[in-house]
């Protein structure tokens, strides 16, 4: 995204853009509409000696409902480039006003914009994006009467995801190394993999680097049928466990292949779980990276 930063540097170097006349002069009718809408009853904004509320400053130079652009400013080139690069989201993050003096009805103003900064690429809760800052100065003749420093975030909106995706990271993560990664990769692809010795064929869970029967380090795996029987289980109530709603069931499941494995029993009430209960494996995506093999009630 160097080209975006190059463009930003160019736009910033151009300094203040042309002073553009506001669509209409400061006037009593617009002041009255604004103060009524805001519920501002300050007498200073009423009657023959009324001044314009300072916070109205941006009103005088707004383009109006038709959104007509009087003249393109260099800032527009930068914002268009961000849109084209996919940073189509926009949210205002900062707005500071500086008022040099009160304005009175009848004054004709101009405004000019200067781009002052662009930072990024930043990771934000909304998505990755750039913060762009600019400064608007309003003039009466050549006298600066007010200034505004404005910052917004142009971000790349996160892609829409199905409900099963895009969840926050599941906090209970396994440590994985070269001896165990086949198991977790299997879970991601919907396979319950049991380590099998490449020489003597012995099945083993949990897995390890060396076959305890023949010392072989030639490892392979078998894909389990996915059925099992509850050998023991617990129902966890207290204390609370991160990433889990209590109560939940954890079981030692005995597989027909001859090994045991630990996992949650899901899709049934904890009170229905018992030793000897047939279960069937199911694979559950806990977040975008981790899939766990879990167990649901199965056919006897």
């Amino acid at each position: 995204m160097t080209d975006l930063h190059d463009l930003a540097a160019k736009v910033i170097a151009e300094g203040e853009g042309p002073r553009l006349p506001t669509p209409s002069p400061v006037d009593r009718t617009t002041i009255r509409h604004w103060t009524e809408a805001m519920g501002d009853t300050n007498p200073r904004y009423q009657g023959p000696d009324a001044i314009a509320p300072p916070a109205m400053i941006q009103v005088w130079s707004m383009d109006g409902l038709n959104g007509r652009k009087r003249t393109r400013a260099p800032l527009d080139d930068l914002l268009d480039a961000l849109d084209a690069a996919g940073y189509t989201g926009v949210v205002a993050t900062n707005c500071e006003h500086i008022y040099h003096r009160p304005l009175v009805p009848g004054e004709e103003l101009t405004s000019a914009t200067r781009t002052t900064d662009m930072t990024g690429l930043k990771k934000t809760a909304l998505g990755d994006g750039y913060f762009v800052t600019w400064q608007v100065t309003w003039y009466a003749q050549d006298e600066p009467v007010a200034e505004m420093i404005f910052r917004l975030l142009k971000f790349r909106p996160r892609e829409e995801r199905s409900p099963s995706e895009g969840r926050k990271p599941y906090p209970l993560r396994p440590a994985v190394n070269r001896d165990t990664e086949f198991f977790w990769e299997g879970a991601r692809s919907g396979e319950l993999r049991i380590q099998k010795c490449g020489d003597c064929g012995e099945l083993r869970h949990p897995p390890g680097p060396v076959c305890p029967s023949c010392r072989s380090v030639k490892r392979t795996y078998a894909v389990a049928a996915g059925t099992g029987v509850v050998y023991s289980y617990v129902v966890h109530h207290n204390p609370p466990v991160p990433g889990r709603e209590t109560p939940f069931v954890v079981a030692v499941v005995e597989l027909p292949e001859g090994v045991r494995i630990v996992g949650n029993v899901v899709d049934c009430a904890p009170a229905e779980v018992e030793i000897g209960m047939p279960v069937r494996v199911t694979f559950r995506e806990m977040d975008d990276e981790l899939t766990l093999p879990l167990w649901t009630p199965g056919e006897s």
Binding site: A175, V176, P206, L294
Partner: peptide, 24 residues
């Protein structure tokens, strides 16, 4: 939640249980 954090033999051992909330 850090019990299964490191791939030491201990961390790997815990990792067959901690992801299922079996951790107290």
């Amino acid at each position: 939640a850090g019990l299964g954090g490191e791939p030491s033999s201990m961390g790997l051992e815990m990792s067959w249980h901690v992801p299922y909330g079996l951790m107290t």
